[in-house]
């Protein structure tokens, strides 16, 4: 039995197979409409994340399965002080697979140690969110046709954005991927990413999106949060540099893709939404396909 706790749990080959399966699901949804008949997914959400939870639930319903679970910690036994280890042993009797979101780092790992059903980490604090990374990879591979030989720009809050860190970790495994890290100096990627993960790889750190955008194949936008700044002036100065609008899109390649883990606030102007290069809503759809593929793999049904 396998779990998914970190985006690097799958080897490059296993990942490639998983993405193939997701693409097959995309093309032949009917073929998969009943593969999970009689199976149950438990969604154990100790902190609310409506989008991720609904994506998992939609994925299971698309496969013909059922869903049980809770959406906040107050409606679970956690509010009575039950440990994650106890909860998972109980849920193992009710469901065939589970997706867990927890505010504390390592919670899904704790669950996996006592679980008799596969555990999917649906986010553990600021630590890992592997299904977001799988979503990003599927989106890029489906729309670009490859994960190697790309120049990817990561823009915004690169310091605290765990989706960015996971994506970098996942993409360094492919040939000839160039990274352009676009952020204010205050929000650069943490030193361990520069010194351990990106060491020896082709990457540059810049502060200006307009200068960087023409060379990009992928632009991965993230939200710059006000509370990350020490003073208001810095925030106001920075926030507009990173708003993607029509003018900046004019500088980009015709086949560049714009991705965003969502929710966006104002960092992508709504006028960009109708641009064929805007892929962030397609990305949400790919998130469902990749979760379907993952459920099938972990249940050993495909």
């Amino acid at each position: 039995m396998r779990h998914l706790l970190s985006p690097l749990d799958f080897s490059v080959e296993e990942l490639s197979d998983l993405l193939d399966l997701a693409n097959d699901i995309e093309k032949n949804p009917k073929k998969y409409a009943h593969v999970c008949d009689g199976k149950k997914l438990a969604t154990l959400f100790y902190e609310p994340s409506t989008r991720t939870r609904l994506s998992f639930e939609a994925a299971m319903h698309n496969l013909g399965g059922n869903v049980i679970g809770f959406a906040t910690a107050d409606s679970s036994s956690a509010s009575k002080g039950e440990s994650v280890s106890d909860t998972i042993r109980i849920i193992s009797c009710y469901a065939d697979i589970c997706a867990m979101r927890h505010p504390k780092e390592g919670a899904a790992t704790v669950a996996s140690l006592k679980s008799s059903i596969p555990v999917i980490n649906a986010g553990d604090g600021g630590h890992q969110h592997p299904t977001q990374t799988l979503t990003d990879l599927l989106t890029i591979r489906s729309l670009k046709g490859r994960l190697d030989n790309i120049t990817i720009g990561l823009c915004g809050d690169l310091k605290f954005g765990r989706t960015v860190h996971s994506l970098i970790n996942a993409l360094v495994r492919y040939e000839n991927v160039k990274f352009v890290l676009i952020s204010p100096p205050e929000l650069r990627v943490p030193s361990y990413i520069r010194e351990e993960v990106l060491k020896g790889f082709d990457f540059e750190e810049v502060t200006d999106l307009e200068h960087a955008i023409p060379k990009l194949d992928i632009l991965y936008m993230t939200r710059v949060q006000k509370e990350r700044f020490f003073n208001e002036d810095d925030y106001i100065r920075m926030k507009d540099c990173y708003i993607l609008d029509k003018a900046k899109m004019r500088l980009a390649k015709d086949d560049m893709l714009v991705l965003h883990p969502l929710p966006r606030v104002n960092e992508i102007s709504v006028e960009v939404d109708d641009d064929p290069r805007a892929a962030y809503f397609k990305q949400v759809q790919y998130g469902v396909y990749v979760r379907m593929a993952l459920i099938l793999r972990l249940l050993e049904l495909a």
Partner: peptide, 13 residues
């Protein structure tokens, strides 16, 4: 010592 770690709230781990 990570205050965000699951061990910070589940003492028996």
């Amino acid at each position: 010592k990570n205050p965000r770690c699951i061990t910070s709230i589940e003492q028996e781990l």
